[in-house]
Simulated scan of single mutants.
Amino acid sequence: MKRPTPIPPRQTPPAPDEDDFAGDEPDEAPARGRLGSILPFGRSKHADVEDEADGAETTESKDPDAEKVGLRRLGWRRKRAERAEVRRFTARSRRRRIIWLSSVGAVVLLAIGTIGAAYSPLFAVEKIEVVGASALDVAAVEASLEGQKGRPLPLIDRDEIRAALTSFPLVETFSIEPHPPHELIVRVEERTPVAVMATDAGFTTVDAAGVALDTAEAQPEGVPIAEVEDGPHSDVFAEVGQVLRALPEDLAKRISVIRATSPEDVTFDLPDGGGVTVVWGSAGDTAEKIQILTAAFSAAPPDTVSTYDVSSAGVLVVK
Results as ranks from 00 to 15, higher is better:
Lys127Glu: 13
Ala91Arg: 14
Lys62Ala: 12
Arg94Trp: 09
Ala91Met: 10
Glu67Tyr: 11
Ala47Gln: 00
Arg78Thr: 14
Asp48Phe: 01
Gly42Met: 04
Lys79Leu: 14
Asp24Gln: 15
Ala29Tyr: 06
Ser103Thr: 12
Leu39Phe: 03
Pro30His: 00
Glu129His: 08
Leu109Val: 13
Ser93Lys: 10
Ser93Leu: 13
Ala111Asp: 03
Lys127Arg: 15
Glu50His: 07
Pro64Tyr: 08
Val108Gly: 13
Arg97Cys: 08
Lys45Trp: 01
Ser93Arg: 14
Phe89Glu: 08
Gly113Lys: 07
Ser102Tyr: 07
Pro64Phe: 06
Arg78Cys: 07
Ile112Ala: 15
Ser44Cys: 00
Lys127Tyr: 10
Glu129Arg: 07
Gly36Gln: 03
Leu74Phe: 08
Glu52Met: 12
Lys79Trp: 13
Asp65Ala: 14
Ile99Cys: 00
Ala31His: 01
Glu50Thr: 09
Ala111Ser: 14
Ile128Ser: 00
Leu109Tyr: 02
Ser103Trp: 10
Arg88Ser: 15
Thr58Ala: 14
Gly36Tyr: 01
Ile98Phe: 14
Glu50Tyr: 05
Val108Trp: 12
Val108Asn: 06
Tyr119Ala: 04
Gly105Cys: 02
Gly23Asp: 10
Ala47Met: 02
Phe41Thr: 01
Ala53Tyr: 10
Glu52Gln: 11
Ser37Cys: 00
Arg97Asp: 08
Glu67Cys: 07
Arg78Val: 12
Ser93Gln: 11
Gly33His: 00
Asp63Pro: 04
Arg96Ala: 07
Lys68Tyr: 13
Arg96Tyr: 11
Gly36Thr: 05
Gly42Cys: 05
Glu60Asn: 07
Arg96Glu: 08
Ile98Asp: 11
Ser102Thr: 15
Arg97Leu: 10
Arg43Tyr: 01
